[in-house]
Amino acid sequence: MPDNTAVKLRDRILNIAHRGARAFAPENTLEAFAKAHTIGCDMIELDVHLSADNEIIVHHDDNLLRCTDVKDKFPDRPSYFISDFYFEELNQLDAGSWFARELALPAESRQGFLQSLTPEEFARYISPQDLARYASGTINVPTLGQTLELSRNLGLWVNIELKMLPRMYPGLTDAVLDLVDEMGLQTDVLISSFDHEQLRRVRQRSPAVQTAVLTNERLALPGEYLQRIGADAFHPGTEPLGLHSLTRTLDAGAVSAVRKLDKRVNVWTCNDKDEMRQLIAAGVTGLISDYPNRVREVLDELGAMID
């Protein structure tokens, strides 16, 4: 371990629920964020887009086909991009039934992240009442305002990913910052993006809001790069850190370089416990996972070892 203090790992490493606890509830919904809280997460990660009437919408894909019934509700639309729908239309969509249908499939036929869901996890974290609600047609695509209100009530930090590539929403960054300022949550959010120019925009407008460089590519001198654009954290995927290489061995150099500058390293998407242990040993400060229960179990296991 990086040190032998008696401070529990959970006090030093953030358990971050990817799109909410999306292994156990429909991703990027209020239900997924509430489920993350029940599992004991510190932070939720979510994605934002702009609707046709400039409402900030929480959704991962830039179109609505995978996670809603948009084609049933609006069968004749020429486009299913979020930016082509008004909030009043988006609010009519069912964002939960697709997930209930996935869970009814054999594990090998589910979406990739759900293929490793164990029967024990299913039984523990997805109740019959949960399944009925997911299939009820009453779960909506939330706004960022609704989500931030929930997170404030639950005491959760929020990682807001600006989904600016490839669609480049005019005004999204400023709209998010305006809402964060209005709600007084400047120190409760972290803004990340693959479009690092947006992180520069955040820093120009707000010295209080933290930013994170999101990447799935290897960066040369990542610590120096973060300093140059004024970012507070590095959010690499597991691939550029070597965990999908031939040796499946972590290249800890990037983690070490960033941590030496007293900046955070939060890695996505970590669903494998052995990978989590390697990352923790390398000194990461957060694990972004579809299965935050597994993160909690690893933190408890390793925390007990150094107490």
Rank of each mutant, 00 (worst) to 15 (best):
A254E: 07
A123W: 03
T147G: 09
S193W: 10
D178Q: 11
V7C: 07
R66G: 06
A25Q: 02
D251T: 10
P292N: 11
A257N: 07
D232M: 09
K263Y: 07
E149S: 05
I160G: 03
A17F: 07
A254M: 08
M305A: 15
N15V: 05
M305P: 02
S136Y: 04
R66V: 08
D195A: 12
S83Q: 08
V258K: 06
Q186N: 14
H235R: 08
L172M: 05
Q198M: 10
I229A: 08
Y80L: 06
P75V: 09
E27G: 11
E275H: 14
R201N: 13
R248N: 07
L9F: 09
Q204N: 14
A21C: 05
R201Q: 10
L46V: 10
A175S: 12
E149D: 12
P222H: 04
W98K: 01
M276L: 10
K8G: 08
G283T: 01
S127K: 12
A104S: 10
L150M: 09
D53W: 03
D272N: 10
I39H: 09
L105P: 00
D272A: 11
P292T: 04
D274F: 10
G242C: 04
F24S: 00
D251E: 13
N15L: 04
E217Q: 15
L279M: 08
K35L: 01
V48R: 08
F194N: 00
L65N: 13
L64A: 03
V209K: 12
H49Q: 02
G96T: 02
K263Q: 13
K263R: 11
L172V: 02
L103I: 00
Y125F: 14
Q186V: 06
Y169F: 10
T238P: 04
Q204G: 09
L179F: 06
D84K: 11
E197A: 15
I229Y: 11
I82S: 05
L214P: 01
G112W: 05
A100E: 00
I16F: 05
